[in-house]
Structure formats: structure tokens, C-alpha cells
């Protein structure tokens, strides 16, 4: 008899959660607000967190600005070449204890590379998020998100996150008020035109 020990921490997402990422898959995020989206997702995935960015990338995460509890479990990898970066992503996705992988590849991924990452994510049961440049997505991705920060009224930090590609579900746009300190967020209902008349009162 063999017993399989599950090393994987469980994410706090439910299937009907619109902003949840499907587990065991690799996703993509583009747009200026992609780092914020990645951090938002990081707060929802417990366990060790890996952030892979090229060595020559000037931006570095600032621990004082990260959401609570993220900087303690963050492992930052800065490989020198694109090949090493993709290798590191695959290796981290395949590793059992890692809870979430964020990577910033420089070039568009080939279909082969994208498929490889999906297989690694499946084998390691780790979700991954690639922060890509505009229109540099791979066809192998599970979902793609366009993320941007939106100006809001007083005391709000609005983000507009839209799912612009989804292999197994619907697309959609959500405006979210997330202040960037914890996993808590408010969904902002968008003002939309009604397609049918309102129910008469009474």
C-alpha cells in the first residue's frame, strides 16, 4: 500500500469565483497593471511563491509595498538568459511544494514552450502566471488577462481586469477595488444599460 502525501497548499478559490485562476494551468497577464494582478493572485495562493524575472530587468519588488505575507514566502529568481528563465519556470512549476509561479519572459513563447509549461504545471499541480508584453501571448495559455489600473474617486484603488482569452469558459471584464495589502477586494458593479424594462414597482 502506498500513501501519497500532498505537499501542495490549497488555494482559497472556488470554481465559481470569477477572478480565480484554474489550478494546474499556466495563465497570462498583459497590460500595465499586470504586476498588481500577479500580486493579487499571489495573495490567494498559499505556500512558497516564485517570481522569475530577467537579470537585466530594472524593476524589483519592494517588500514594504507587497501585500501582507508575500515578501516572506517570495523566492526571487533572476536568470541571465531567456532559455534559463523558461527552464526555471518549468522546474518551479514541476516542483511539488511551490504554491504559485510568476514569470516575466521577454520574448513571445512558442507553442512548444507554452505546451511544455502546461505539462509541467499539470505534473507539479502548480498554477503559473506569465506577465507578458502587449500581444506577445502564446496559444497554449489557459486564460489571458488584460490588466490596467483605473482612476477612481476618492479613496479607491480600482483595477480593471478583463479575461480576453479563455480556453474553457467565458470572457469578461471586472472592475475591482483592491487596495493591495491583503486578499480582500470589492467587486465594483459596472453601470450598464438595461436590456429589458425594470419590473414595475409593487
Amino acid at each position: 500500500m502506498t500513501m501519497r502525501l500532498d505537499l501542495k497548499p490549497r488555494p482559497q478559490t472556488s470554481p465559481d469565483d470569477p477572478l480565480g485562476l484554474r489550478p494546474r494551468r499556466v495563465h497570462e497577464a498583459e497590460g500595465l497593471g499586470r504586476r498588481a494582478f500577479a500580486l493579487f493572485q499571489a495573495t490567494r495562493h498559499p505556500g512558497p511563491l516564485v517570481w522569475i524575472l530577467p537579470a537585466h530587468s530594472p524593476a524589483r519588488p519592494l517588500p514594504a509595498g507587497l501585500p501582507d505575507g508575500v515578501s516572506e514566502r517570495l523566492l526571487l529568481l533572476t536568470p541571465q538568459s531567456e532559455t534559463d528563465l523558461l527552464w526555471a519556470v518549468e522546474e518551479c512549476l514541476r516542483a511539488a511544494p511551490v504554491g504559485f509561479v510568476i514569470a516575466e519572459p521577454e520574448k513571445p513563447l512558442s507553442l512548444t514552450a507554452g505546451r511544455r509549461l502546461q505539462l509541467a504545471a499539470e505534473a507539479g499541480r502548480t498554477p503559473g502566471l506569465l506577465l507578458i508584453r502587449q500581444d506577445a501571448g502564446s496559444n497554449a495559455t489557459e486564460t489571458r488577462w488584460a490588466c490596467k489600473a483605473v482612476a477612481g474617486h476618492q479613496d479607491s484603488t480600482l483595477h480593471q481586469w478583463s479575461r480576453i482569452k479563455n480556453k474553457t469558459g467565458t470572457l469578461g471584464t471586472w472592475t475591482v477595488n483592491w487596495h493591495g495589502a491583503s486578499a480582500a477586494f470589492d467587486m465594483v458593479s459596472t453601470a450598464a444599460e438595461r436590456h429589458q424594462p425594470a419590473d414595475p414597482p409593487g
Partner: peptide, 23 residues
């Protein structure tokens, strides 16, 4: 398992490139 992962990563990309943020 995490230490093994860091060993594998460090041996390829260099141990000075697998970093942690300390205050």
C-alpha cells in the same frame, strides 16, 4: 522539496540568482 528545488536552480542559474527578500 523546496531546498532541493533551490539546489537544482542554483546549480544552473547560479546560487546568487536565487534570492530572498530580507528586511
Amino acid at each position: 522539496a523546496l531546498a532541493d528545488l533551490i539546489s537544482r536552480l542554483g546549480n544552473r542559474i547560479g546560487f546568487d540568482r536565487a534570492l530572498r527578500l530580507l528586511p
